[in-house]
Design a protein around this nucleic acid. Structure first.
Lengths: 187, 187
DNA sequence: CGGTGAACTGTACGCTGTACATTTTACCTG
DNA sequence: CAGGTAAAATGTACAGCGTACAGTTCACCG
């Protein structure tokens, strides 16, 4: 059933994913779906988290924590770009409901911790990174009226902007750590 | 009519804003609305841009361009927080359709230019800042199931995270300018 | 006074999510 | 193999949605 839902989403976007269309595809009456799913919103939540399974998680114990974060955020961004319809929903859900999202969040915290970012600072840093990744993907959602070629051109620029923003954020986070270290050394 | 739409939005969120409900409030049949508005989506677009009128625009020729950007982004963030329902839509629209949004975007470019950020770099910087502001607001959208007190507590943390991210971005943007200046001096 | 355009109405279509009571199906236990 | 039980699917139904279409009212201007 989730498979069929993903198919519909891929073929006709979020508009094509109605309970009735999904039931039709499965050769079943619409209400049968409610034996497997509480509500349409929760269905979308599941789809949302499914998508994140494709995100590439770096080894949390690797050498360079910043590179690790860059990998995970870039991969998240790329994956979300492939599911533009879902992204606005995602932000409103704080991107943190399903198990996959949770796993990614924990890897991020671990990486930050290995860089010396802990406690409230780590949560703030993680949130800024998440917002940047999801927000950038949402920004790339093609408007219905744009042509296909125009879309691709725009996407190249958007990816460059994503990359620049990601570097700024990571640099800022790392700089804060240095500051804290210096302040600690002074004591 | 836009006033009535804003009222509905304020009272019952996006769910309460249906063409039929709006018509009811105006004492009119639903179809009468289509003499004033192309489609519901375009109505929402207008509402969206209306909201941005409240954003505080600093003097683009003021002393400190970074402070100016901080003001405009913080104000945007605060304004959007008051209209949580609209924010996800906003991101998907690239927040750049209406005249108010356009005006804000130009002020941002002007401020960046005064800091020596120009060309493609300025567009990337602006985009990162916009994404951060809108994305942070979207992240703060209260989930239906949360209690009111829990929401307010969370919002305090979210605003702190917004602030931290904003500083990181600005610092990164400013640092890039210094680098470019140094590189230019070397030539 | 006649005409023109905007505003509005009534009717209608096809779609949405989902509640309720009922029936079919699959499986486990005695 | 028989009987019970729980999951799954069904038919019917409701209230709502956005909006297309054709026709009417009405204010205003030449």
């Amino acid at each position: 059933m989730l498979d069929a839902a993903h198919e519909l989403l891929g073929e006709g976007g979020l508009n094509a994913l109605s309970m009735r269309a999904l039931a039709r595809r499965l050769g079943v009456t619409p209400n049968a779906l409610y034996s497997h799913v509480d509500t349409k919103a929760s269905l979308v939540d599941e789809l949302l988290d499914d998508v994140l399974e494709a995100v590439e998680t770096p080894d949390a114990d690797g050498a360079d924590w910043q590179a690790g974060l860059r990998t995970i955020m870039t991969s998240t961004h790329a994956v979300l770009l492939g599911h533009a319809d879902l992204v606005p929903q995602y932000l409103a859900r704080q991107g943190a409901r399903g198990p996959n999202a949770q796993r990614l969040g924990e890897v991020m915290l671990a990486l930050l911790g290995r860089g010396g970012v802990t406690g409230g600072g780590a949560h703030r840093a993680r949130q800024a990174l998440i917002i940047h990744a999801i927000g950038s993907a949402a920004f790339a959602t093609p408007l219905p009226l744009d042509g296909n070629d125009a879309v691709e051109l725009r996407q190249a620029g958007l990816i460059a902007a994503f990359d620049a923003g990601l570097r700024w954020l990571l640099a800022g986070i790392a700089a804060d750590v240095s500051l804290a270290t210096l302040a600690g050394a002074e004591k």
